[in-house]
Lab assay of single mutants.
Amino acid sequence: MATDAALRRLLRLHRTEIAVAVDSAFPLLHALADHDVVPEDKFQETLHLKEKEGCPQAFHALLSWLLTQDSTAILDFWRVLFKDYNLERYGRLQPILDSFPKDVDLSQPRKGRKPPAVPKALVPPPRLPTKRKASEEARAAAPAALTPRGTASPGSQLKAKPPKKPESSAEQQRLPLGNGIQTMSASVQRAVAMSSGDVPGARGAVEGILIQQVFESGGSKKCIQVGGEFYTPSKFEDSGSGKNKARSSSGPKPLVRAKGAQGAAPGGGEARLGQQGSVPAPLALPSDPQLHQKNEDECAVCRDGGELICCDGCPRAFHLACLSPPLREIPSGTWRCSSCLQATVQEVQPRAEEPRPQEPPVETPLPPGLRSAGEEVRGPPGEPLAGMDTTLVYKHLPAPPSAAPLPGLDSSALHPLLCVGPEGQQNLAPGARCGVCGDGTDVLRCTHCAAAFHWRCHFPAGTSRPGTGLRCRSCSGDVTPAPVEGVLAPSPARLAPGPAKDDTASHEPALH
Results as ranks from 00 to 15, higher is better:
residue 63 L to S: 00
residue 265 A to C: 07
residue 127 R to E: 03
residue 183 T to M: 06
residue 152 A to M: 15
residue 115 P to N: 10
residue 262 Q to F: 15
residue 174 R to M: 03
residue 3 T to L: 13
residue 235 K to V: 14
residue 16 T to R: 01
residue 3 T to R: 12
residue 16 T to G: 02
residue 246 A to C: 13
residue 76 D to L: 05
residue 262 Q to D: 12
residue 204 G to R: 14
residue 117 A to P: 09
residue 257 R to C: 01
residue 47 L to I: 00
residue 15 R to T: 03
residue 145 A to F: 13
residue 121 A to C: 14
residue 247 R to E: 15
residue 57 Q to S: 03
residue 259 K to Q: 09
residue 51 E to D: 08
residue 195 S to E: 08
residue 225 Q to I: 03
residue 266 P to A: 10
residue 197 G to V: 12
residue 104 V to T: 03
residue 133 K to Y: 01
residue 139 R to K: 14
residue 112 G to M: 04
residue 93 L to F: 03
residue 230 F to Q: 06
residue 231 Y to G: 04
residue 91 G to D: 00
residue 86 N to Q: 00
residue 197 G to C: 12
residue 36 D to L: 01
residue 255 L to N: 05
residue 75 L to F: 06
residue 65 W to S: 03
residue 37 V to Y: 03
residue 58 A to W: 02
residue 250 S to M: 15
residue 86 N to E: 00
residue 19 A to M: 15
residue 172 Q to D: 12
residue 227 G to Y: 02
residue 241 S to I: 11
residue 14 H to Q: 02
residue 243 K to M: 14
residue 78 W to F: 04
residue 214 V to E: 04
residue 126 P to L: 02
residue 45 E to H: 00
residue 198 D to M: 10
residue 195 S to G: 08
residue 44 Q to M: 00
residue 47 L to S: 04
residue 176 P to K: 14
residue 81 L to P: 03
residue 130 T to G: 12
residue 220 S to C: 13
residue 121 A to R: 09
residue 256 V to R: 03
residue 35 H to Q: 00
residue 66 L to H: 03
residue 125 P to M: 12
residue 49 L to S: 00
residue 52 K to H: 00
residue 167 E to Y: 15
residue 137 E to I: 09
residue 35 H to S: 03
residue 124 P to F: 14
residue 175 L to A: 05
residue 206 V to D: 04
residue 35 H to M: 00
residue 74 I to S: 01
residue 106 L to K: 04
residue 131 K to G: 01
residue 132 R to N: 00
residue 62 L to R: 01
residue 72 T to K: 15
residue 17 E to P: 01
residue 187 S to H: 13
residue 28 L to T: 05
residue 122 L to N: 03
residue 73 A to Q: 00
residue 272 R to N: 14
residue 223 C to Q: 04
residue 52 K to M: 15
residue 190 R to I: 02
residue 34 D to H: 15
residue 60 H to G: 02
residue 257 R to Q: 06
residue 91 G to P: 04
residue 246 A to Y: 14
residue 203 R to L: 11
residue 109 P to V: 05
residue 272 R to L: 10
residue 206 V to L: 11
residue 206 V to T: 06
residue 271 A to F: 08
residue 121 A to V: 06
residue 34 D to L: 04
residue 144 A to K: 03
residue 130 T to S: 14
residue 131 K to C: 01
residue 69 Q to W: 00
residue 255 L to E: 05
residue 223 C to V: 09
residue 269 G to P: 14
residue 75 L to E: 00
residue 254 P to Q: 13
residue 265 A to T: 10
residue 154 P to I: 15
residue 244 N to I: 11
residue 158 L to S: 06
residue 186 A to L: 02
residue 101 P to A: 04
residue 123 V to I: 12
residue 191 A to P: 06
residue 205 A to M: 01
residue 135 S to A: 15
residue 182 Q to L: 02
residue 222 K to R: 11
residue 229 E to G: 12
residue 120 K to C: 13
residue 168 S to M: 15
residue 92 R to F: 03
residue 2 A to S: 13
residue 23 D to N: 00
residue 225 Q to K: 13
residue 193 A to L: 03
residue 210 L to G: 05
residue 34 D to S: 00
residue 11 L to D: 05
residue 100 F to C: 04
residue 181 I to Y: 12
residue 59 F to S: 03
residue 216 E to K: 13
residue 118 V to W: 12
residue 128 L to Q: 04
residue 237 E to K: 09
residue 146 L to P: 06
residue 150 G to H: 13
residue 145 A to M: 04
residue 70 D to Y: 00
residue 44 Q to W: 03
residue 202 A to P: 08
residue 81 L to D: 04
residue 68 T to I: 00
residue 185 S to G: 08
residue 251 G to S: 07
residue 53 E to K: 15
residue 240 G to H: 02
residue 112 G to Y: 08
residue 102 K to I: 15
residue 101 P to D: 03
residue 153 S to I: 10
residue 22 V to N: 01
residue 262 Q to T: 07
residue 25 A to P: 07
residue 2 A to G: 05
residue 211 I to P: 01
residue 103 D to G: 14
residue 243 K to I: 10
residue 227 G to C: 08
residue 23 D to R: 01
residue 49 L to T: 00
residue 124 P to D: 05
residue 45 E to W: 12
residue 256 V to C: 07
residue 98 D to M: 15
residue 223 C to A: 06
residue 253 K to D: 00
residue 190 R to M: 02
residue 128 L to P: 12
residue 179 N to F: 04
residue 40 E to T: 00
residue 72 T to H: 14
residue 240 G to P: 07
residue 234 S to W: 07
residue 221 K to Y: 02
residue 105 D to K: 05
residue 264 A to P: 09
residue 27 P to H: 03
residue 4 D to G: 02
residue 271 A to I: 11
residue 257 R to N: 00
residue 81 L to I: 02
residue 213 Q to Y: 13
residue 203 R to C: 15
residue 15 R to I: 04
residue 228 G to W: 00
residue 148 P to A: 07
residue 179 N to R: 15
residue 90 Y to K: 00
residue 224 I to K: 07
residue 96 I to M: 00
residue 127 R to P: 07
residue 15 R to M: 02
residue 134 A to N: 15
residue 234 S to D: 01
residue 62 L to C: 05
residue 239 S to T: 12
residue 149 R to E: 10
residue 68 T to N: 05
residue 255 L to G: 13
residue 20 V to D: 02
residue 66 L to K: 01
residue 160 A to P: 01
residue 63 L to T: 00
residue 128 L to N: 10
residue 249 S to C: 14
residue 252 P to A: 10
residue 41 D to G: 02
residue 53 E to T: 14
residue 175 L to W: 15
residue 38 V to Q: 01
